[in-house]
Write a protein that binds this DNA or RNA. Structure first.
Ligand code: MN
Ligand code: MN
Ligand code: ZN
Ligand code: ZN
Lengths: 164, 164
DNA sequence: AACCTTATTGCAATGCATTGCGATAGACTA
DNA sequence: TAGTCTATCGCAATGCATTGCAATAAGGTT
């Protein structure tokens, strides 16, 4: 079955924009460039992830994919997410519970910061993270992956509260 | 059944040392101080964790606990690990796969650094981490939890390899 | 030592994620 | 268009982790 030009629009989802090379087109090229195949399922999963702007866990993506195609299975979704990461089209970080949370690389790279006291969540954009990554590099020589960065600690107000 | 003074020694494990307040004794006091109860299972789980110097995942601890007491169940082990953390006697970080990895607070606080290229693992002791935590605090105001810190990135040699 | 209160346990059901395997179907060839 | 090769899929089994619930037992009281 052909699926190359299928632009699957899910209920309540925005159509994938097509600047001069849509995500699907670039993905198809990258996948086939490795001797792999472009399938309906991969198309759908990429569309769902694109429509989930922001973050989405594997389970959430499975649910949304299955809403559009009930015959799709978790294994296919997770394997496709791994593929998208390998190809550099997606990345993940680990939420508070350690579960992987995905987003497309089109989203600006950013890290996460979670307060263990009040649960506050902060996103660290590249500019904010720069000094942190620089410190890591200075101390260890490692180039830390900002998209994967997920810090836990105490926010200023929880610190103040703790200090009596 | 009494278990207060039971010092359960597992095959191949070192007896819990008893400086002037053994771990078990301090734990029992902390638990009972909250109106909770000191049980055989908690004793055993604490002993197993103490004997697992270094890191151990939940599943590993479950396995070791069940080796000593086959009637123990995963739910009890995980609930006890949560309790030990609440009481400040243990902490966890997330391994590469996001799974929680536990250690007793007696182990010196340290963070983790993992190379996504070659899989190298580095431990960051408090001194090494200091500038990193300082940068996080400067930028965000957060006091990051060193024990929970788990960074991913590229080690120097993988970076060099990537740069042609 | 027998008795109470209720925190804790084991169990069973549930959910998330991964893997091996046989069936299906991309994508290339003729 | 029909045919071939094999990457990918769905399935089913497995493992890790969490939760509600009824039975058990910790630990204080009489
Ligand atoms: Mn955590
Ligand atoms: Mn990860
Ligand atoms: Zn806070
Ligand atoms: Zn490396």
């Amino acid at each position: 079955m052909h699926c190359n030009k299928v632009s699957r629009i899910l209920p309540g989802m925005k159509p994938t924009p097509d600047p001069q090379g849509s995500l699907a087109t670039r993905l198809q090229a990258a996948v086939q460039g490795r001797g792999q195949r472009w399938t309906e399922q991969r198309q759908l999963i990429a569309d769902v992830l694109a429509a989930s702007d922001g973050h989405a866990t594997g389970a959430e993506l499975v649910e949304r994919v299955r809403a559009a195609d009930p015959s799709a299975t978790p294994s296919t979704v997770y394997r496709t997410l791994d593929l998208l990461e390998e190809l550099g089209f997606a990345s993940h970080h680990h939420g508070v519970d350690g579960r992987e949370t995905y987003h497309l690389e089109e989203v600006l790279a950013h890290g996460h910061l979670h307060c263990q006291g009040c649960g506050a969540e902060v996103e660290l954009d590249a500019a904010a993270a720069k000094p942190i990554l620089a410190a890591i590099e200075r101390v260890t020589g490692y180039a830390a992956d900002l998209d994967h960065l997920s810090l836990q600690g105490r926010c200023p107000s929880c610190r103040a509260a703790a200090a009596r």
